[in-house]
Design a protein around this nucleic acid. Structure first.
Lengths: 216, 216
DNA sequence: TGTACATCAGTGAACGCGCGTTCACTGATGTAC
DNA sequence: TGTACATCAGTGAACGCGCGTTCACTGATGTAC
């Protein structure tokens, strides 16, 4: 099988991951566009010059973060796709999966929502490519669904786009709902999150109804 | 009626507007989070210290930009609301209005899409407040529509949210479609924009169908 | 297993530069009489 | 209308500071024999 990494390679990967983690943390309160290389290395505890052993600049690090963040989202999307059952069960399941994803990877969700339209072109492009891939994948799954008989490829792709966009928007809204959760406000934050989830479910039901009558 | 501004006040307003315009231009390729005060004053041709006669810092300037950008969007939304006719005509009209808005105020659209989830909290908050106001306004208009008989306030609000979010996303997508339009690619960009508009119309039709069968 | 050399992730000092902020100022505009 | 004083938008110099990038380096790890 795959041979074990040498000590040197393993240590390098560890430092690289520490840089990525530190950057993600620092991006909670700023945009990638203003993230400094020295800020990141300071947070990790290595010399500024060490940064260049791993990334060309912070935009390059941002692209690596896109792969990490959308890798985890990809798994959630696949889990939502394979769900079976009636439309209401599928909607509940999809929304639960998104909520769990946000709880597991809040910083990833924030990063994607923030940089999707952010000021760093290569990162924006990388996010765009991946989200389009997700939509293609969802469109393919929708095409396999008997409910989609008679749908054109363009219409399936349009519907898939609605689902993917909705997923990203909902994830970001859940994050925002929990943002003010300090001390006593925890209960209020939980209520706000539940309101976001309820709205998301209603919106998905609306789309499902539209889908059902698309070919009328 | 309102008395004319003094020469001093008029000149001050002119400088303030020049700072806002310069900032908006500089934000095409970066986020507010990384916009420098000196950058803005340099673009206008005034001393750095002059900035403080108008804004506390760049975040403060950003909040002023939100009001400017969402003021113009507000008018477009009102125009879309008062449209009459069958649902297809209303959809076509709404999408045309968005396209015209993007053509008239591309930098405003970019700013809102970028900073809606951006790294500057006061700006994010200001955008959130205004978009929620727009949704309230749309919900009220939807409530007056005979097609919405029997709808709960929460459902109307949910639907209004879908429309407002869709409008912002579509505006941003139109901008992105035209982004690569240099030289020979102009024709390709126009085709890309038309594809975005076609998708937006289909998505609105999907929502309209869902709306029609909401109470089934 | 042991030795001699090659590799290379991370160091630490140095650089020039542009940043945000302060301050006393200037001179055109505004106001009171 | 004319004069004397007040206001205040914009100036320009100065400050300390952290930035990104470069470079020769060190010493642990890897490799060839």
């Amino acid at each position: 099988m795959s041979h074990t990494l040498g000590i040197r390679q393993a240590q390098k990967q560890k430092t690289r991951q520490a840089l990525l983690d530190a950057a993600l943390g620092l991006l909670e309160h700023q945009s990638l566009s203003s993230l400094g290389l020295r800020e990141v290395t300071r947070a990790v505890g290595v010399a500024p010059a060490a940064f260049y052993r791993h990334f060309k600049d912070t935009a390059d690090l941002g692209v690596a973060l896109v792969e990490e963040a959308l890798g985890s989202l990809h798994e959630t999307i696949r889990a939502a796709i394979v769900t079976t059952g009636g439309s209401d069960e599928r909607i509940d399941r999809a929304v639960d999966l998104i909520a769990a994803h946000v709880r597991a990877h809040p910083a990833h969700v924030r990063f994607i929502a923030r940089e999707r339209h952010g000021g760093v072109a290569p990162v924006r492009a990388a996010i765009g490519v991946q989200l389009r891939r997700f939509a293609d994948e969802v469109a393919e799954a929708l095409g396999a669904d008997p409910e989609s008989g008679g749908w054109s490829a363009a219409d399936l792709r349009m519907l898939a786009g609605v689902y993917v966009d909705h997923m990203v928007m909902t994830a970001s809204a859940i994050l925002e709902a929990g943002a003010g959760a300090d001390g006593d406000e925890e209960a209020a934050a939980r209520r706000a999150e539940e309101a976001v989830l309820a709205t998301a479910r209603r919106q998905l039901r609306l789309v499902t109804l539209g889908r059902r009558h698309w070919l009328d």
